[in-house]
Amino acid sequence: MTTLFFWIFAVVVAGSALLAITRRNGVAAALWAASSFIGIAGVFVLLGAYFLAVVEVLVYAGAIMVLFLFVIMLLNLREADLKVVQGPRMHVGGAILGALFLAALVWTCRRSGLFDVPVGAGGPIGETGTVAAPLFRDYVLPFEIVSFLLLAAMVGAVLLTKRRLS
């Protein structure tokens, strides 16, 4: 059952990502990317990372994609702006590079026996409480630094988009 759901989510993730990078329309691309993120949240649920699945849907498919759609609609691009893609050299080069990378990855996984290690059942369960324990015990300092990073990003975004600094 887990395997069946894994394959369904894998097809959703990869197919949506492929559609997201090929759409000319920015809104369609952002919506397909959101579909891909929801697929990833599904894989997280299969792995027992319930907290991260919720965060993925809330932050990625929710907040980040809304921000993307907001900016795409704010810029109100003309059709002519959206039709430009790189020449065939980049496509072919990228495809070769990607195929080499994937082949190396699968070969390494096969060599190290990762295809024989089942995961999912019996793994650590990442509920809110169990993720919070290491987060607030071992990773308190990074947690506080991230809060400052978010503050800095917020101030930076407001400053960058201001029309004129006085």
């Binding site: 887990t2 990869a14 990607g98 994937l102 990855l105 699968v106 996984c109 999912g120």
Partner: peptide
């Protein structure tokens, strides 16, 4: 579902990006 499958899926997603 094995670790290898998940890493391969992550690799496919990374390649698409």
């Amino acid at each position: 579902m094995t670790v290898g499958h998940l890493v391969t899926l992550a690799g496919v997603l990374f390649t698409l990006g």
